[in-house]
């Protein structure tokens, strides 16, 4: 171990920075903290913490088991501060569950039909692909935070006024 300690932050322990305005409106910087957003949201509520045109980054509290999701494009997830398992199913008929021209993730009722693709178990800082044509669900034995690279869609929550610095 060297002389330096890396500060990762977590849903249980984080420090927020902030915007000090000199000649500007702090709201323009859309400043929030992903751990605070996850901590104050329901499990697997996918809250946007960044948005650029149609694209979003979502923060979510991973706790217990999520429902199943799919999207008509790839997505990616990073486990920020704990252990998360992701299970995958190759959808037998993906177009029946999500419009192939649509954007963003959709929630699927019940376990979808299709072949078992396997699973990954992520630790802190691990990134996994959520591939197009599959369905996926998360499970976490202990509460932690996941960050998802996706597109604004049906499951994306917008709570900017609740979480961003004003």
């Amino acid at each position: 171990m060297g002389q330096y300690t890396t500060d990762f932050g977590s849903i249980h322990s984080y420090k927020k920075g902030g915007v000090t305005a000199i000649d500007d409106d702090p709201k323009r910087y859309v400043f929030s903290n992903m751990f605070e957003v996850a901590a104050k949201s329901a499990p697997y509520e996918r809250v946007a913490v960044a948005k650029n045109f149609e694209y979003v980054i979502e923060s979510a509290k991973a706790e217990g088991e999520s429902g199943w999701y799919t999207a008509a494009h790839d997505e990616f997830v990073i486990a920020m501060d704990g252990k998360v398992r992701v299970d995958f199913v190759k959808l037998a008929d993906p177009d029946a569950l999500v419009d192939p021209e649509s954007e963003g993730a959709v929630h699927i009722e019940g376990k979808p039909e299709g072949a078992n693709m396997g699973y990954v178990v992520l630790g802190r800082g691990h990134m996994a692909m959520l591939p197009v044509g599959s369905a996926y669900k998360f499970s976490a034995p202990e509460t932690c935070t996941i960050l998802i690279q996706s597109i604004d869609g049906a499951v994306t929550q917008h709570k900017w006024a609740q979480f961003c610095q004003k």
Binding site: D7, Y14, S32, E36
Partner: peptide, 9 residues
């Protein structure tokens, strides 16, 4: 702007 681990801006 001061950003700490987990901050989004």
């Amino acid at each position: 702007i001061n950003m700490k681990a987990g901050d989004c801006c």
